[in-house]
């Protein structure tokens, strides 16, 4: 057993971190939120060039995947830098089409891997979302409905989210791409991939919130001292770190289980999803509280992460659904 990331995986994370840091993602997020997808698509192309989207696509379709662990590593960095767009959905669409194969895979997967196409995905099942994230920015919106996969040809009105960088809409109409008993199984796998990378993304969001808040309480003084010297402040931050640190290995284990097609993968993914997202959400609450009033402003970039934590918690598996799944047979 060597339950540690390899040097290559760490280096991959560092590379993405450096690239995203210099890309100035807060400006990209704000553009995306206003409906200007240009800077977001430019960043998307750079992420594709770094190999992020190919990780979900099988080799026979010009990808390098599926590599769930590398996806988790990459999505940690995407979350850390609040990258906007249907990221989990594109990865999950790659997983879906990769499993299904056929013409749709042949047409779309190379484009997803290369970043030429941005995909969104909507899986219509009980408790799932009826929306496709960023449907207006996507080149392809895939809809799974029972044993059918459709390529939507339109979407309903945009439904702005409490996180302005998330723009859901109902997918409408479309042509059938695949039908049959293979669809539900492929969709379940795709949803697990989506849940895994959402968990990883949430952890990145949580880490960014923690880092920024630690920085802030070190320099913010009241009563003549740094507020970070107060126990009440320290203990909230300590709890934030604990939650993130104990969610991380669950995310790695879930990625390994998906890689191995382990029959318990669903439970591992659910455990990772609920733990990572609860940790990230708690980090957001702490970040807001410890920043005080300035944290409650849109102009502070912190708001980009604070508002992301809550929707990620629900996306691709609510906490209740995840907990139920952990105990399922």
């Amino acid at each position: 057993m060597r339950f540690l990331l390899s040097d290559e995986q760490r280096e991959f994370a560092r590379t993405l971190d450096g690239m995203l840091r210099s890309a100035g993602t807060p400006g990209v997020v704000r553009s995306w939120a206003s409906g200007d997808h240009g800077p977001g698509r430019a960043l998307w192309a750079r992420l594709a060039e770094a190999g992020v989207f190919a990780l979900a696509v099988p080799e026979e379709h010009e990808g390098v995947g599926p590599l769930p662990l590398e996806l988790a590593v990459a999505f940690g960095e995407l979350g850390r830098h609040a990258v906007p767009g249907p990221l989990a959905e594109t990865a999950a669409a790659g997983a879906l089409l990769g499993r299904l194969g056929g013409d749709a895979a042949h047409v779309w997967l190379p484009q997803l891997a290369s970043g030429k196409a941005v995909a969104s995905l909507c899986v219509l099942w009980p408790g799932g979302s009826p929306y496709a994230l960023d449907a207006d920015a996507a080149d392809a919106v895939f809809v799974v409905d029972g044993d059918t996969v459709r390529l939507a040809d339109a979407h309903g009105p945009m439904q702005p989210s409490a996180d302005p960088a998330r723009r859901p809409a109902r997918p409408l109409g479309g042509v059938v791409l695949a039908q049959g008993p293979a669809v539900p199984a492929a969709a379940a796998y795709a949803a697990d991939v989506a849940a895994l990378v959402t968990a990883a993304q949430a952890l990145g969001v949580g880490r960014a919130l923690l880092e920024r808040t630690v920085q802030y309480v070190r320099q913010r003084t009241q009563f003549g001292v740094a507020v970070g010297s107060f126990q009440a402040v320290k203990h909230r931050l300590a709890d934030t770190l604990i939650a993130l640190e104990f969610a991380q290995p669950l995310v790695h284990a879930a990625a390994l289980a998906l890689t191995a097609d382990d029959p318990a993968a669903g439970r591992e993914v659910a455990a990772a999803k609920v733990s990572a997202c609860e940790a990230a959400y708690a980090a957001a609450r702490t970040a807001l509280q410890l920043h005080g009033a300035v944290g409650y402003t849109e102009e502070l970039d912190l708001s980009l992460w604070i508002r992301k934590a809550r929707p990620l918690r629900t996306a691709w598996g609510t906490p209740a659904a995840c907990r139920a799944r952990v105990l399922a047979d």
């Binding site: 057993m1 060597r2 339950f3 540690l4 640190e245 104990f246 969610a247 290995p249 669950l250 790695h252 284990a253 455990a271 609920v274 733990s275 906490p319 209740a320 995840c322 907990r323 139920a324 952990v326 105990l327």
Partner: peptide
Amino acid sequence: LRDRVADAVIGARAYQLFTYAHASH
């Protein structure tokens, strides 16, 4: 109650994995 049972199971698994990582380290 189910959620609390699940959280205990998840917490124990997280602690197990965390120590596997420590042992690997």
